[in-house]
Write a protein that binds this DNA or RNA. Structure first.
Lengths: 209, 209
DNA sequence: TCAAAAGTGTTGGCTATACACCCATGG
DNA sequence: CCATGGGTGTATAGCCAACACTTTTGA
């Protein structure tokens, strides 16, 4: 083996989900069961097998979260190449997003951890930097990349959900009225009645075609 | 060697340059000197060494163009993972852009080929698809990603150059007046007199800080 | 009937677009 | 002094942010 010619490539996944109860966008972590960084928090990642598709590797990676649910959609973010990112030796890491249907925290999430997207604890490897960098890419995807958006929102969502998702991913406020008008211009999105509300006017429901 | 754990990773580079004489944006190709695809046109690419930075690999790759000039700036585009993209076996390819100062065609380009960005001949490997996909990412970089933009335009450029670059990268028309106003709002860009013209009013010169 | 939550309407400002017109140069 | 190419000004439309106001529900 000419060891300079073969590389270790990992896929590190940013699992995302929107929790409509708390109206919070969260990302998934697990505690590493083995060295290096045993016991520390990390994004789910695997070494990519030769010939394996990145999406297939990402699906293997998220198995580490031990969820019953599967990601609805996956996509590429960017590739990290800092040679010292893994103490075991040089590796490349392709960062990908994986959007899940809404998960009931605790009940559906097992031993995985789901901090809010605004929170960033210290993580294993260079995962703190990966989260910091890649979550800045998400505003460009929301309401622009439809597979991503549709997977995050789910098939039906209220205008209030849309406001919450937008505010958390873009980190600045949106006005409900203006967002509703923006949603009306998105092809494939249509109004579908209203949703029951707790103590207020029932919000508009948007549904994907 | 556990052959499923190590991957072949290549960097394939989209070398870009703006030719102010013809006012054309071009990308660089070379004829492959060896199998596979011997004699066919291809993007310059190399196998990434273990522990090598992607930018370093990209700089090695563009050596295949045999240019005297070096790229002014480089950046990542996306990663291609189709397993059959190379007949020698599965590999990943990280596509990167590399922006060159303006090159006099023929004189500065040696045996490399520089088609206009709108042209896409049949290329070796999956390079036709790589060019087709990645050139769609360039409109998002122009006038947004300053290292990219500055490297493409060079330190000084006329308003006419700006129109030509924009039209070719975005594939739709811009009006000179409006583009000039947009440029005026870009931090770091300032007017710097005018350039000699051939048979018309001398165009405004823009210069980077 | 009130508070809470959300929809609707309206305004002002900004940006984009298109066009008309004016200006500087070379021949 | 004319053709050429480029700058400048302006009108219009569209979009966006902000805010006031109205509507719908549950208590």
């Amino acid at each position: 083996m000419t060891d300079t010619i073969f590389s270790v490539v990992t896929v590190d996944v940013l699992p995302l989900t929107y929790d409509p109860d708390g109206q919070v966008v969260r990302y998934g972590l697990h505690r590493r069961p083995a060295p290096p960084f045993e016991g520390e928090l990390a994004l789910p990642g695997v070494v990519v097998h030769s010939g394996e598709r990145l999406e297939a590797a990402a699906r293997r990676a998220v198995d580490k979260l031990h969820l019953r649910a599967d990601p609805v959609a996956l996509g590429q973010l960017r590739t990290f190449d800092e040679p010292s990112r893994d103490p075991r030796g040089p590796s490349l890491s392709v960062a990908m997003w994986a959007a899940y249907p809404s998960l009931r925290m605790g009940e559906d999430t097992g031993d995985s951890l789901w901090p809010e997207i605004a929170d960033l604890p210290a993580l294993a490897f260079d995962h703190t930097a990966i989260v910091a960098t890649t979550r800045e890419l998400l505003p460009a995807l929301l309401w622009q990349d439809m597979p991503f958006t549709r997977a995050i929102t789910g098939e039906r969502f209220t205008a209030t959900d849309a406001v919450a998702i937008t505010r958390q991913l873009t980190r600045h406020d949106v006005h409900r009225a203006n967002l509703n008008r923006a949603l009306a211009r998105i092809p494939g999105l249509a109004q579908a009645g209203t949703a029951p509300a707790a103590g207020g006017r029932p919000p508009k429901v948007w549904a994907w075609a």
